[in-house]
Design a protein around this nucleic acid. Structure first.
Lengths: 201, 201
DNA sequence: ATCAAATTTAACCAAATGGTTAATGAATTT
DNA sequence: AAATTCATTAACCATTTGGTTAAATTTGAT
């Protein structure tokens, strides 16, 4: 768990290259250049490309998962969690634009990797949040909906524009600025929409 | 524009391999094996890996874009278009699970490719649909919303679960059957949700 | 200061990969 | 039927790529 300066610079460089190109298209030499070190150092510290990739993936998830879980598992009311999730996630992703795409991309290309990962690491877990939703429905405080569908709506509306950014910009005919404006507007729009769907009249 | 049997089998094989692995991880030899032909044939018909990939990408888009445009550009009312889009898209993607992920993935890895592509080919274009929404808002038939946000919500809710399937299954703790059930339910749930948000009380 | 361990480098290697070529077989044309 | 074009194959090639090695340098303990 000790991280030397070299090890850190390797991880940072690997992150940059893997995020931009994905596992298969990333080159060890490019990572070495990015880190201003010899290519052999990559193997000295991480043994193989796959191991290095695993370390980067772990770190990426390690940034996102606790953040999401802190929202899912707080003791705040449902509506507030929805607002916090959307605002927090969009803010987070604007600063880390490659992260969610990277995770989804590599989990799709190698589903086995994803499964193993979910079994062995701290990952986003909305189960408490789902229970909370179910309870509120029972008490008649919100309208009936499958909690999983609600969570899926929340994630879809929030994450998709970033994951499919290239396509979204193309389809909606946006430039970079228009895209960012739209995303900022969504911080309000998405919670309003979801809450409007489940609040009792 | 003449497609021989061999050329077709190459395209089919390339589609299979590129969809599963992406451009960078796909191997020409694997495509040749999949098509039961000699590797040299790939170059005989398509010159290079990039050209072959371009042909596959074009075909993939060529399947999806006209389908979406036929919905966007029909003369049906807004609510009906929303229902048609969701039902049609989910049905389509259940049968072609790799398609949207593939398109989004490669557009993210190579944004320039995406931009060029959008300029030079038939792509999904919701601008008429957006105008229709704006008109309905003016007439007071639906509640005010940025038409682009409405379209983005529609696409996000519908497409994301498939694009981020690995992550969704992991986060919501689903198996293959539960996922499919959830997707079928969404054919009703998504239109209800969107329409509920915009219909005048 | 000395020695051993850890770190860094340059040169090297084997395997894989996209791509080519020249010969062969199958159709088509004349 | 001969000639010519098109389709297909096996062998080959240059380059790239992940990975190794052995020597050199630095670091740290004694």
């Amino acid at each position: 768990m000790i991280h030397t300066a070299t090890e850190k610079s390797i991880l940072q460089a690997a992150k940059t290259v893997f995020f931009k190109k994905g596992l298969a298209a990333a080159r060890m030499q490019e990572i070495a250049n990015e880190a201003n070190i010899n290519k052999a150092m990559l193997h000295y510290y991480f043994r193989s490309k796959e191991k290095l990739f695993g370390a980067v993936f772990l770190q990426a998830f390690g940034e996102l998962a606790p953040f999401l879980n802190s929202i899912f598992n707080s003791d705040k009311p449902v509506f507030e969690k929805i607002r916090e999730f959307v605002d927090g996630y969009i803010t987070f992703v604007v600063d880390n634009p490659y992260l969610p795409t990277f995770i989804i991309q590599e989990m799709n290309i190698n589903p086995q990797f994803g499964e193993t990962f979910f079994r062995n690491h701290v990952t986003p877990d909305p189960s408490k949040f789902e229970e909370q939703i179910a309870r509120e429905i029972e008490h008649g405080n919100i309208r009936p909906i499958d909690p999983k569908q609600l969570v899926l709506n929340l994630i879809s509306l929030t994450a998709f524009p970033f994951v499919g950014k290239g396509l979204v910009i193309g389809i909606l005919d946006l430039d970079e600025i228009a895209f960012k404006t739209l995303m900022e507007e969504r911080k309000k729009l998405i919670p309003e929409m979801i809450i409007n769907t489940i609040k009792v009249q």
